[in-house]
Design a protein around this nucleic acid. Structure first.
Lengths: 231, 231
DNA sequence: CGGCTGAATTTTGAATACATTCGCCGTCAG
DNA sequence: CTGACGGCGAATGTATTCAAAATTCAGCCG
């Protein structure tokens, strides 16, 4: 997916990346992710070329890329705007993510090392502590690290790229979800069961569990979505 | 040179045919899919602008789109070329497809109608007949219709889009695979079990079966890949 | 005779220019 | 007073131009 963005970390100041359109795409992704460009906001090419100090050509190429990734939508003869996610689309995306994580768990059991599992356990414990300390940012951070560790252990870059792309599109929604103590304790229990299944290298069972685990998050997120989006 | 606007609204969503870069992207997809542009073949912008009768701007936008989709890869300062799929990447993609189909099966069990299941049964029977008649094209065609029917029954457009994108990237490999009678009879048995599980609306079990079913295909395809790609 | 250097040519990357289309807004008829 | 028509300005879609990097190829040196 994001092919050109991950290579080439150069020492130079700003002109290091090969493609201007790639740099621009990265910056726009960040603007969207950070919320500086809100959903439904129109993209004004003139404004952005001025802001980035480039011409319209690479900017427009970046727009096409982001549109293909699903972060922007194209309006005929009216340019582009930041894609807005409907509630049903969010639910669909969560189901797909659940499937991708299930796949990752299944594959991870083939080759994951004990050390990697230990790292997950460490994050899990840190996550529990963060929750108990009402440290929401830390909680989400460790939680994400756990799921990304499983994804990495799948040793499947195609899978990881699709996952990253989808995650990027819903990140804002995903990490604005607040859980009840009930939901939280269920999530913790599922995490612990995940660790057991990883140790047992039981891919099939882990896949089932992960799908259900993400679905649990899905309902939390969906519940919060209405409030968040009712602007 | 050429009129900028040729058609107002064609049947469909209403945005696709309007952009030159979109038309070009479609045509290039077809060229790649048909094999007219082979993997590793360099894209010469001058040649293609001449061929399509357009300027370089929309062509380059189309190239960026196809590169984001994974059909092309960009070479810094050397343009683009048709993406070639390594054997490991093909295997990775098949695992992801297995996961997507498993997800589709799981979701399909929630809302699939009896009529839809009957249609699948019809295709399945036709597929068996095609095989017995050594009609390979018919066999693949019906087989694909079955899997697409399950995908459609998932009622998840995000899932279907990702599936279509991945399928498009491997189609050439996928439908060049020949099965042994052994593999075939196993595939038939799995299809029949799939139908049972659909009738029972047992999503979890169907997911497991579908993942294994696609993995079975995966080994067939991977075995054929070496021969096909050893150019 | 072969490999290397470097200038000419080609090709790509980016910027600018041109051509439509859309949207705003004032005007005017009903 | 309301709503439709049309002109004007701004923004988008496409083409063309400019600049830099790569490829080619001829001539030179070893």
């Amino acid at each position: 997916m994001r092919r050109g963005t991950m290579n080439k970390i150069e020492a130079g100041i700003g002109i290091s990346r090969r493609y201007l359109h790639d740099q621009v795409a990265d910056r726009m992704r960040e603007l969207i992710r950070s919320g500086e460009m809100e959903p439904k906001a129109r993209i004004n090419e003139g404004e952005l070329t001025e802001r980035f100090g480039i011409s319209r050509t690479p900017l427009r190429e970046a727009i096409k890329i982001l549109a293909t990734e699903g972060l922007l939508e194209l309006l005929p003869n009216r340019g582009a705007r930041v894609a807005s996610i409907s509630e049903t689309e969010l639910e669909e995306m969560m189901e797909v993510i659940a499937g991708l994580e299930a796949t990752a768990g299944d594959l991870a059991c083939r080759t994951i090392s004990d050390a990697e599992i230990d790292a997950i356990v460490t994050d899990h414990e840190a996550m529990v502590l963060a929750w108990k300390a009402s440290n929401e940012a830390g909680y989400f951070s460790h939680n994400r690290r756990i799921h990304e560790a499983i994804m990495a252990a799948s040793r499947n870059t195609v899978l990881a790229n699709i996952y990253a792309s989808l995650s990027g599109r819903i990140q804002r929604s995903r990490y604005s979800a607040h859980q009840t103590p009930d939901q939280w304790s269920r999530a913790i229990a599922e995490h612990e069961r995940m660790i057991e299944l990883l140790r047992a290298r039981d891919g099939a069972a882990l896949a089932v569990l992960l799908r259900e685990h993400i679905r649990g998050k899905k309902s939390v997120i969906a519940a919060n979505y209405g409030a968040a989006e009712a602007v």
